[in-house]
Nucleic acid binder design. Structure first.
Lengths: 278, 278
DNA sequence: TCGGAAACGGAACGCATGTTCCAAAGTGTA
DNA sequence: TACACTTTGGAACATGCGTTCCGTTTCCGA
């Protein structure tokens, strides 16, 4: 996209109002392709003159030329619509991933049991429970991502980190009211199983995200979500896992929003503040 | 397509010149969406008045209304999923996420520029360079996931962690041969920008994964990947980011496999060992 | 061959839109 | 605080466009 390239190139030298217009150009190309200067200006909360100034700043002769560029891009984009689907199948790096990751998301979310989801969300939204996440090295990243998001919604969300000794010591201190989230894939360390067994003995309610219902962790968990983790490269893809986590986080957010919107409002305020900063 | 329907319905009662115009409308919708009455008339070998007559005959108020109809159809056809998602708000939690995350993967991977990908992979596979990943709190998880995977393929992959002071101190020690990977989303901390600027001054080659080409970090990076991060809940979804990271990791793996398969073989051996353990 | 009506396109009209200019508001500096 | 500069949006201007009207051409039946 020619216009997107130019915007990205000299995005830094744009003024505030010009940037607002540029964002609309990037996010709503139809508006500039089909619309008028006045409409684009209104959508960006700017004046018509600002729109024209941005166009010239981007190297176009005026809004008309910018519009032509966007129209050209859109026309090219929709022409092969049916044709382009067939061309890049599987051969290239990106196409391979595209198919694979789509399938991962599809099967991971598609196999979610509503009852299990509701149960897991209820436990994760329980303010009386502390939430601990136990993951192996290979998926510690997505685990931490889950902890960050969930931790923004509620208190007492922790990732069990460190070496085997440290983790098992933490698990020994769990209370029966606590909730444990385990991540289990084929290539994980064996001692995680032992840690999970310890937690189960302590009466901790557990949910596991695994790539197989036959995983040992699933046997010791009250609920299990099976995700697809097929990777195009040498490693597993954790996109399915992250998708499931996102569903859980949204579910908890919905549930907690009804009970206590105050915390989310505070978060929104922070975000809005950070948003306007930029 | 509304216009196509109407043309087909009363196609028999069209005059010769009107039929020529109608054919152009069907075969070159862009011409009527982006063009003018005169251009459409010229393409059909007819007069401007004939174009307007056809439009009214089809039940439209005039050419303008016909044009709006075609534009609306094209716009709907353009948005593959990303924006269409927002209109029919999914009823259930899982279905909403399924649509949304599929769209995130689709647009994130679909907008990858092959040249940028090849360039980024080449830099990330460069054994002489150290790789540093700079991310805000909200996406530290996916960043760490990337570091773990890439770190299994090559040496010297680090995440820049900790508070502002610690990070900027680390950045001050970067060498011009190093590579920096930055993650930039709307809700991020401002000091990340300052850190990225410092790195740019030091001559470090940088690639950024962002949700907008207008992000300040994109301005200071040699390459940028734009991902879709729309979330169904209160937070951004990092699935698109993770998908791009997976592509990068696979690309590096392919490249390094040709040069030195030895390290990957060792990794495979470890994995096989862990596999049989279970 | 003639007459009438339908079809068609060119040209003038009026309006919407892009462009340009300028004054006001904002921002940083001495 | 005052000043210079940048940024911004409103209003006038001019261009291009859609619409409409009307004269010409084509077609068909008598």
């Amino acid at each position: 996209m020619e216009s997107a390239d130019r915007i990205g190139r000299l995005g830094g030298s744009l003024t505030k109002a010009e940037r607002r217009v540029a964002e609309v150009v990037l996010e709503q190309p139809q508006l500039v392709a089909f619309g008028t200067v006045a409409e684009l200006a209104a959508a960006a909360g700017a004046g018509a003159a600002t729109v024209v100034r941005l166009a010239t700043k981007l190297g176009f002769d005026g809004f008309t030329e910018l519009q032509s560029s966007v129209q050209h891009d859109l026309a090219n984009q929709l022409r092969p619509a049916a044709q382009r689907i067939r061309e890049p199948v599987g051969t290239d790096l990106v196409g391979r991933h595209l198919q694979l990751e789509q399938a991962n998301v599809q099967t991971s979310l598609g196999s979610i049991d509503p009852a299990a989801l509701a149960d897991a969300v209820a436990h994760l939204a329980d303010a009386a429970a502390r939430v601990f996440v136990l993951a192996g090295d290979n998926s510690r990243g997505v685990a931490q991502q889950f902890v960050v998001d969930l931790g923004a919604l509620r208190d007492d969300v922790f990732v069990l980190d460190g070496n085997e000794i440290a983790v098992r010591r933490q698990i020994a201190l769990l209370r029966p009211t606590d909730v444990l989230v385990t991540l289990d894939f084929r290539r994980y360390e064996r001692w995680l199983v032992g840690a999970a067994v310890d937690a189960a003995r302590a009466g901790v309610w557990a949910v596991t995200v695994t790539d197989s219902l036959l995983s040992p962790l699933a046997a010791h968990a009250q609920r299990a979500f099976v995700v697809a983790a097929a990777g195009a490269g040498p490693f597993d893809s954790h996109i399915g896992t992250l998708a499931v986590f996102n569903v859980l986080v949204t579910g908890v957010a919905d549930q907690l929003r009804a009970v206590a919107t105050e915390r989310l409002d505070r978060l929104e305020a922070v975000w809005q503040h950070a948003l306007t900063d930029r």
